[in-house]
Design a protein around this nucleic acid. Sequence first.
DNA 1: TAGATTGTTAATCGATTAACAATC
DNA 2: TAGATTGTTAATCGATTAACAATC
Lengths: 250, 250
Amino acid sequence: MTAVTVCKTIPPYTRYMVIDMDLSNPLPLSRPEARSIPQPSLQRLPQYHHYLVELEAKRISRVSCSAIGQDLGLVPVQVRKDLQYTGIIGKPKTGYSVSELIQAIETFLGWNNINEAFLVGAGNLGTALLGHERFSKFGLRIVAAFDTDPAKVGQWVHEKAVLSLDKLADLAPRMSIHLGIITTPAEVAQAVADEMVKGGIQAIWNFAPVKLKVPEHIIVHNEDLYNSLASLSWKLARRFRVPIQVKEAV
Amino acid sequence: MTAVTVCKTIPPYTRYMVIDMDLSNPLPLSRPEARSIPQPSLQRLPQYHHYLVELEAKRISRVSCSAIGQDLGLVPVQVRKDLQYTGIIGKPKTGYSVSELIQAIETFLGWNNINEAFLVGAGNLGTALLGHERFSKFGLRIVAAFDTDPAKVGQWVHEKAVLSLDKLADLAPRMSIHLGIITTPAEVAQAVADEMVKGGIQAIWNFAPVKLKVPEHIIVHNEDLYNSLASLSWKLARRFRVPIQVKEAV
DNA sequence: TAGATTGTTAATCGATTAACAATC
DNA sequence: TAGATTGTTAATCGATTAACAATC
């Protein structure tokens, strides 16, 4: 508001840019960590990334918001807003540089600095994740697996050793591992989380259907298939219920 | 508004209930399919369900919103709103009946009428899902698996037959299967989805990281691990960036 | 009765979308 | 220049939360 008097002819958002440049921050790209981002936007970024990588493979070097929106089923202005969080700036009329966008998204999401992780629970799901080469493209490398089953300990799964769970709390700090993945049955998930916290793990990606109790500073993400199944089966069930509902109304 | 004159002394929401009963719908429970529900609420319902089942195992028969909220990290009024979508009604001072709540949630989510499903892609992830007994508690039963790999076709995985993919479009309508699960690599997911649509599948639970192109009436749910990994690694990366950021500010 | 808890309405908060100026 | 596309602001839409009456 006070800036209005300084330069009346320039519209508000141009003024904002000038102020921004005054602080010698011409490239917002240089401090993406300073910004906050809505959860939905954050979750759309990997979609853009995936799409852009495909474009790059097709040797397409520039893209507009409308084109992205068209292919991903989003309105252009939403794409624009989302991309702005990464700090990237486009060119009117020509759009955005595909390679710059990819770079910006990867930097923003921290996919450049690889996260090494420990996985606990070498069952079917654990094995599936251990074999998931594509994770490395998204900055995640699972370096070892843990289990309590003596039959599994000492084995190798997808070139990764399966170690005894009681080694975890000791190994994690020595290898400076900050990320833990839980793919155990629900019953033991809490005990595993406790071990991880003891080992100084900062973030837990939890595939067990339990609400983990951990100290407040630990980041927990729940990958709860049941939540997802819920909405799917509700929609499907509703579809088959519809004729009945119509009947009742008559 | 027009109803105000009818009965001035009764406050608005009591009036609403009266009107509702006038339409001979005393139990909202009887027509849960008529209501719409916000996506976030829908995804919280399985959490309540899981929690309530645990309570029931402990022989606790009544529960209040505050208790639920306490344990699940939600404010009481949000719990109340969510539960209202299922049409359940509680009793002031004593709370809700645990068993009625469980019943209401299951009915609302359609978990009573079992969804039989076909799964395509008998790799690690597919095997993990096939072995997931708990799904049956949530109304899902995977009845057969499909694959194109000759080494897998004809095998049995967790007591389920692995069939050749080209049988799917024929079998689905004959067995009246409406739900398909895709756990294939991204490259073939679209082709699999096409087969499912040909077979009359109504809903697809997609674990491959691709945006599927299907007719508009098909329900698709994407279980994209990368979206989830994105926000986790962003938060973790940001945490480690913080000291640097502070330095820059100085 | 008093206190606890539900059910409802209204206010708030946050994300999306509409409108439009700036730019190439 | 004209048209396309970006970047910004303001309006809209939807979910959450606050406040409070009703009920047991």
